[in-house]
């Protein structure tokens, strides 16, 4: 195992953890089925890319077309990516989250994800179409030489800082009164309205917060892999993240991290070592997707609460559900 592989694995793990903490806030804690999550990551990545790249007339960059090209220093592109993710959440949320029933919300977001990808793929002048953006400059590459082992670990370190930051914020949200309102809304929206909560406002804020974090995760990833094309953010990528949340355990941040380590990182790393000469070309990646589907269906059937179930918040002196059932039975 060389250091490049290790750094690669760690950065991917960090990006997946950040993304899953955001998706857990939306889907796990608040019950918003954001099937277009990957779009928010993609928008963050594109924004970070065009903020850090030089204009497309620069020597060496003329083979691609894109708008922007501001060549801004780190960390502005990352912050820009996060803000872009949050800004995208506002119009999408206003259309989808205000009136629609929850299953319609899910469908609308799924369709949005498919269509956005199609538009970006076909509209070349905007973000270079299907070919995507390449040669995205790495953060601080003018200070540290990116081709060194030191830089790899430097990147792992700044990713780790972001992971910790996001984890702390997500934990604060989940354990705050606001987080309790979100859970109340997820469990029974009408009851939440009855005690004076505004579900549209709750959903909108968590949708924007999730968008910001998703944008950040995309920005981190694009700075590391240096290229971004529509083919890497197709809607099935979101399904992997949902599989991770379902496997890890909905509604708790530790479960989200566990899911990140088990599904996008663990599962894909393990299956990477299956020799690709096995079967016709494309068989192994296809079977990986089938396995992701089986993982979701299997967990929803046998263990819908996931590997690490959400802890039940019980307050001292409050009657627990089992006690009530016992009392009713006797």
């Amino acid at each position: 195992m060389n250091s490049y592989y290790a750094a690669n694995l760690l950065v991917y793990a960090g990006v997946d953890i950040i993304a899953l903490l955001a998706l857990n806030l939306q889907f796990g804690v608040s019950g918003i089925v954001n099937f277009s999550f990957i779009v928010f990551q993609a928008v963050g990545a594109y924004t970070a890319a065009v903020l850090s790249m030089p204009p497309d007339t620069t020597f060496g960059y003329e083979f691609q077309v894109y708008f922007g090209g501001y060549h801004l220093p780190f960390p502005i592109p990352w912050i820009g990516g996060a803000i872009a993710g949050g800004f995208l959440a506002i119009p999408v949320g206003l259309v989808v989250l205000r009136k629609l029933r929850s299953d319609y919300q899910a469908i609308a977001l799924l369709v949005l994800s498919i269509i956005t990808n199609e538009v970006i793929t076909n509209a070349r002048p905007f973000l270079n179409g299907a070919a995507g953006l390449a040669l995205v400059p790495q953060p601080l590459s003018d200070v540290i030489d990116p081709n060194t082992e030191t830089y790899q670990y430097f990147y792992v370190a700044i990713t780790a800082v972001c992971v910790v930051l996001v984890f702390v914020v997500a934990n604060r949200i989940v354990n705050s009164p606001y987080g309790r309102s979100l859970r109340a809304m997820r469990e029974r929206e009408i009851a939440a309205i009855a005690i004076g909560k505004n579900p549209v406002q709750l959903k909108m804020t968590v949708f924007i917060v999730g968008g910001v974090i998703a944008g950040l995760s995309g920005a981190i990833l694009v700075g590391f892999i240096q290229l971004w094309a529509p083919s890497v953010w197709l809607y099935p990528e979101t399904i992997i993240l949902f599989a991770a949340i379902i496997v890890g355990g909905r509604g708790n941040n530790v479960g989200a991290i566990l899911g990140a380590l088990l599904v996008p990182v663990g599962f894909e790393e393990v299956t990477r070592f299956i020799p690709s000469s096995f079967g016709p070309p494309g068989l192994i990646p296809a079977l990986q997707w089938v396995a992701i589907g089986l993982l979701i269906i299997g967990f929803l059937w046998f263990r819908p609460e996931g590997v690490r179930p959400e802890p039940r918040h019980v307050f001292e002196g409050a009657p627990v559900r089992e006690d009530l059932e016992d009392a009713r039975a006797s």
Binding site: V33, I107, I239, F242, V290, I292, G293, I296, I297
Partner: peptide, 12 residues
């Protein structure tokens, strides 16, 4: 919502 996710997994 669970059913929507199941059907999406089946589709995949």
């Amino acid at each position: 919502i669970g059913m929507v996710i199941v059907s999406l997994a089946v589709s995949l």
